[in-house]
């Protein structure tokens, strides 16, 4: 679902449908009831390749202790406005 604020599509939810065409319509009915979006993409669950939840350690915990990847060590210069 892409909101009208010009952001990229974000996941809204999962649903059942007999085919792609009906999936777009079901998504419209389920997830745009309060004018949330201006664009819908649907993807069949079988087309999604996902990361392994059991491999969380190697996949997602390696950035721990690597604070240098965050831009927190820079000092702001007084001469640069609007930073």
């Amino acid at each position: 679902m892409r909101s009208s604020r010009g952001l990229s599509h974000v996941h809204a939810g999962s649903l059942h449908a007999p085919d792609e065409t009906m999936a777009v319509r079901n998504a419209r009915d389920l997830y745009t009831r309060r004018a949330e979006g201006v664009s819908i993409w649907v993807v069949p669950a079988s087309a999604i390749t996902a990361s392994d939840p059991d491999a969380r350690g190697a996949f997602f915990e390696s950035p721990q202790g690597k604070e240098y990847r965050h831009a927190t060590y820079y000092t702001e210069s007084d001469a640069v406005p609007h930073l």
Binding site: L15, H16, R25
Partner: peptide, 11 residues
Amino acid sequence: PELEEDVALGN
């Protein structure tokens, strides 16, 4: 027939 259709007909 489907939960999705409940919502569609309800809408």
